[in-house]
Amino acid sequence: MLDKPRLHVTSANYKYLQVLDILENKGRFYLNDEDLHQKVNRFIIDNHMDFGKLVGLASKGYPNIFLTLAVETRV
């Protein structure tokens, strides 16, 4: 069963929302945290994603991820 998206999904933000969903559900993957973060970082770089936009979207619909990003980057 699929849940309703937390934020409005557009062609401009869907990759950001995918990253946030992956980070939020990281315990469900068969990768250790370091490998997962390396893959996510590579995805962000390869897709020329704006970290500020990622943090902004996290603050609107992913409070736990926003806190993690804020602590890790000292936002």
Rank of each mutant, 00 (worst) to 15 (best):
S11F: 03
T10H: 03
K60S: 07
D35I: 00
L31F: 10
N32G: 08
H37V: 10
N32V: 10
F43I: 04
M1D: 08
R28K: 13
E24T: 04
R42G: 07
V19W: 01
D21G: 12
Q38W: 02
N47F: 00
N47K: 11
V19S: 00
D3M: 15
N47D: 01
P5D: 10
L2N: 11
H48F: 12
M49L: 13
L36G: 10
V71N: 09
I45R: 10
D21F: 03
S59A: 13
F43L: 04
I45E: 10
H48L: 11
V19N: 00
F29N: 05
R42M: 07
A58T: 01
A12Y: 10
S59M: 07
K39Y: 09
D35C: 07
T10E: 01
T10Y: 04
L67S: 14
I45F: 13
D35V: 01
Y62M: 05
N41S: 13
L17S: 13
H37T: 11
L17A: 11
K60M: 09
E24F: 02
L54P: 02
K53Y: 07
K4E: 13
V9N: 02
Y16G: 05
A12Q: 13
P5E: 15
G61M: 07
D33L: 01
E72Y: 01
G27V: 09
M1F: 15
Y30A: 08
L23D: 00
N64F: 08
Q38D: 12
Q18V: 14
G56W: 07
G52R: 09
V40K: 05
K4A: 12
N13K: 06
K4V: 15
A70G: 02
V9I: 15
I44A: 02
H48E: 15
E72G: 00
L57Y: 04
K53R: 12
N47S: 04
H48T: 08
I45S: 03
S11G: 10
V40H: 06
R42F: 11
L17K: 03
